[in-house]
Design a protein around this nucleic acid. Structure first.
Length: 486
RNA sequence: GGCCCCAUCGUCUAACGGCUAGGACGCCAGGUUUUCAUCCUGGUAAUAGGGGUUCGAUUCCCCUUGGGGUCACCA
């Protein structure tokens, strides 16, 4: 039987970076096993439903370079892939369960339920439905149903039975049914709860492996009960460790940076780097290899290597390092391509104006090893494209006196005006000759020129920079800087 | 609180029950360098505690402690 896995987002908000990790594992597993990856929209909560969220979730998954074989906007033979379009199905199955005695109608009001919970808490016992409506006679139920009384359908959880299921990552997990509540299956608005819908859909869609966050472990026994009641085979469960903020907070927090998948992209992380980083949050190949392409990940991924732990920390510094790796390892023209796409997608101005692509590529190649995030491009290259502001205190910082700064600038202006062939090699050679002749230290001379040209103290190598900026502009900038000292 | 899960450097992690517990990020130091990066070299730092089992426990078992999850007509 071929592998079928799924990711089932709930359109209640923006997609979290941790969700992408789960999508990635499912996606890679399907690819590796030559199976099918399906996406199903679980929009059964009408209160929390957010208009447009489903589309944005699908879009961000695509932006990360991941795709699916069946699902909304894609089709497949197990549709529809949106739960709100499958309502009749859930109702039929729930009613069958009632007939079998595995579920029952419940007419209790929300007030009674919350009072009950309150009482139980006060008595220090775990809150649980007291099965009051299970005692209703068939006729009584029928009567109240016909009267149009508001009702739900609840799972009839048997007493004192150990439910054991096997998890590929966490091993055997056993829970006693006394600790399981008579979960609502069908809500009074006719929508199923997650528990009912997920079991029915996973079965009908022939899902073979369920990979999801380990926060679902406690409700898995309910699902097992449901599979049993329906007489269906259990899928293979593989719960995944959850992700937390480095530093102790329980979840990723805005305080430390981005949280939503789309935000990381906007901040200038490359999807390849993000995915590479995410791979290792809960999985490890057991080797020392850490830079992984998607193809390599598909090759090496295995459920057995998913780490059995409670939480993994999201180390933003390591992510940043990894992003720098990816930026550096890109061909410059490919990096430029990424910059352009990023700029268009998020409407960010790269600050290059109408300058030729050839010039931009040269500037980019000079700053590439200095970039960790896409926006570093603007910060690092602005003076290649626009005349910079020169802070006087920085200009005069390196020579012993303002007079000496002036002298250095004058000498370099003379030198550069006379240079016939404006090449990095010639500039390097003649500049060194100049400082030797006048006994300037390399640092005072070159730092002064650097500041006079760029307005800053940290730039790519001076002569590479001058070479690209060109003779006329370089000389002009030196002259403008000189004027600041008068 | 009940139930469930987890426990190796600060972080992600490696180590058929067996060499000085390995790697990566970070941090520190040095080298390269006119600056900032890159790059190279080195260093720092861990088996939560206590009992067992064993010739020998990071590894297996128990307890304690700590962390996390979950107990809705949310997913």
């Amino acid at each position: 039987m071929s592998v079928r896995v799924r990711m089932a987002p709930s359109p209640t908000g923006e997609y979290h970076i941790g969700h992408i990790r789960t999508v990635l594992y499912n996606w890679a597993f399907a690819k590796k096993e030559e199976g099918t990856f399906v996406i199903r929209i679980e929009d059964t909560d009408r209160e929390r439903f957010v208009e447009g969220a489903a589309d944005r979730i699908l879009a961000v998954i695509s932006l990360y370079g991941l795709d699916w074989d069946e699902g909304p906007n894609k089709g497949g033979s197990f549709g529809p892939y949106t739960q709100s379009k499958r309502l009749d199905l859930y109702k039929d199955y729930a009613e069958n369960l009632v007939e079998q005695g595995d579920a029952y109608y419940c007419f209790c009001t929300k007030e009674r339920l919350s009072d009950l919970r309150k009482q139980q808490r006060e008595q220090g016992i775990p809150p649980k439905y007291d099965k009051k409506c299970l005692g209703l006679s068939k006729d009584a139920v029928k009567e109240r149903l016909e009267a149009g009384e508001s009702h739900v359908i609840r799972l009839n959880v048997p007493e004192n039975r150990d439910i054991t299921f096997s998890d590929v990552v966490y091993g055997d997990i056993t829970v006693n049914t006394n600790d399981i509540d008579d979960q609502v299956l069908l809500k009074s608005d006719g929508f199923p709860t997650y528990h009912l819908a997920v079991v029915i859909d996973d079965h009908l869609m022939e899902i073979t492996h369920i990979m999801r966050g380990m926060d679902w472990i406690p409700s898995t026994p309910k699902h097992v009960l449901l599979y049993e009641a329906f007489g269906w085979d259990l899928p293979i469960y593989a719960h995944l460790p959850n992700i937390k903020e480095l530093g102790g907070s329980k979840k990723l927090s805005k305080r430390f940076g981005s949280v939503y998948a789309i935000e990381f992209l906007k901040e200038g992380y490359l999807s390849e780097a993000l995915l590479n980083f995410l791979m290792f949050l809960g999985w490890n190949p057991g080797t020392e290899k850490e830079i992984y392409t998607l193809e390599e990940f598909i090759e090496d991924f295995s459920l057995e290597d998913v780490h059995k732990t409670d939480l993994v920390a999201f180390d933003r510094k390591k992510l940043l390092w990894m992003n720098g790796q990816y930026i550096r390892n890109l061909e410059t023209k490919d990096l430029w391509q990424k910059l352009k796409e990023w700029s268009e997608r998020f409407e960010i101005d790269l600050g290059v104006g109408e300058i030729s692509e050839e010039y931009i590529l040269q500037a980019l190649s000079l700053v590439q090893t200095r970039m960790k995030l896409l926006p570093d491009f603007m910060e690092r290259t602005t003076y290649f494209f626009k005349e910079p502001e020169i802070p006087v205190e920085l200009l005069t910082k390196y020579a012993k006196s303002p007079e000496r700064t002036k002298e250095i600038l004058e000498k370099f202006i003379d030198l550069y005006e006379g240079v016939k062939e404006w090449s990095v090699e010639i500039l390097d050679q003649t500049s060194h000759e100049l400082i030797e002749k006048h006994d300037y230290s390399p640092k005072e001379a070159f730092m002064t020129v650097r500041v006079a040209i760029s307005g800053r103290k940290a730039t790519p190598p001076l002569f590479d920079m001058l070479g690209l900026i060109g003779k006329e502009k370089s000389v002009n900038r030196l002259k403008e800087s000189l004027k600041l000292l008068e």
